[in-house]
Design a protein around this nucleic acid. Sequence first.
DNA 1: TTTCTTACA
DNA 2: TGTAAGAA
Length: 114
Amino acid sequence: MKIGELSKLSQISIRMLRYYEEAGLLAPKRSVSGYRQFEIADIERVKLIHKLNSAGLTLKVIRKILPCWQHQNKKFSPCKEFKNGLSDTLLKLDEQIELLQQSRSHLISLLNEN
DNA sequence: TTTCTTACA
DNA sequence: TGTAAGAA
């Protein structure tokens, strides 16, 4: 199917689908005219990519753990990349939480000064 | 009409 | 991410 159809079926903009390809998360074949040729399985694939990205995973991390996705059972097989990818994301998340807590503290003290 | 690339906001 | 331009 062409990019327009995948976009409608997956609810993901054409812009992002091209972006995902650029990030190495998608590898559609090209027709003679240069049009991207996606597969049925790509519908679920891009939806998953979007969910993971929304969950805070970078496209770089997703690229590592995507190969662990099993279309058959719709689950992740605990391969090496999967563990490393998630633990790495978890550390970054903790880092961000720490920074946000600091901002929170600063705002609170600022509010109590007067 | 749809898609492609590149580039700007 | 959205949108625009120019070409196929």
